[in-house]
Amino acid sequence: MNDAQTITVEVIGVEQVTPLIKHFKLAPAAGGSLPVFSGGSHIIVVMQGAGRVHKNPYSLLGSPLALDTYEIGVRRMEESRGGSHFMHDAVEVGSRLEIAHPVNLFGLDKIARKHVLIAGGIGITPFLAQLEDLHGGSVPYELHYSVRSSEHAAFLQRLQRREGERLHVYYDSEGQTIAFETLLATQPLGTHVYVCGPVGMIKHVIATAQSCGWPDSHIHWEQFSAPPVGDAFEVFLARSKLSVHVPPDQSLLESIEAAGVEVPYLCRGGVCGFCHTRVLELDGELVHNDHFLSEADKAKAKSIMPCVSRANCKRLVLDL
């Protein structure tokens, strides 16, 4: 919805767990406990960078039962627009950040007979919290974790210690790959599959599951897209009667917010559809980067997800 109810947290731990991933521990600055959450939830972290505000979604990876701290893992993105670099370079023990209440867009299905979890790289983070819920329960599950090499296998010791034979690790460096066809063709009825990782992996898992006859309701995935950079463009907000400039390295949503107009949002990663905005006029084309609109809706160019999508246009008018 909006940031009216953010929580101030203090960074109480930072650990470089792989060459690219840092693990942060956040405690409520006012003391006490943080809100209860469910496995698969993410928080939006609000970072006051130099001259601009970053708001990035990060999955909570700690135990939903340990509410004195929240844990997140942040991968340093090569083409960062600043958020992940800010977390890596400017945030240290003692830093203060604002976070929004947890939101779960990637929950475990409670009537599943079995869970198959598939993670690629940093995509392991939502599963770490879900495993806390699954561990000790009566529903069978298995985790397939694909990483570049052993030095890139974040949180592996914690997983090995607890999950034992339910954990399957695959190292790209040793030519190991997940045999998706075999894995997905041999699951019992009532199994749900969850995938979080690079976009290619997600697409492959979805396509393979579908070709094996899995119902869509049993296939779950989450990928937060970072808003991609693009050409600068202008947007006119019809209801606010405001003209807004969108620079190459700032998202449409961020630019609108910087102009003082609030847009309801949940994930800021093109997943939830909450920032869905009507396009009133367009001279040019929209660059849709979200996972929410159908291909048909994208082609119609009547709506846009300003959190990740942009435009190549002479004129764009939004219903804001």
Partner: peptide
């Protein structure tokens, strides 16, 4: 339904 699916914790 669309609204409630996105109902937030604490709100």
């Amino acid at each position: 339904l669309k609204f409630l699916l996105n109902l937030r914790l604490g709100q």
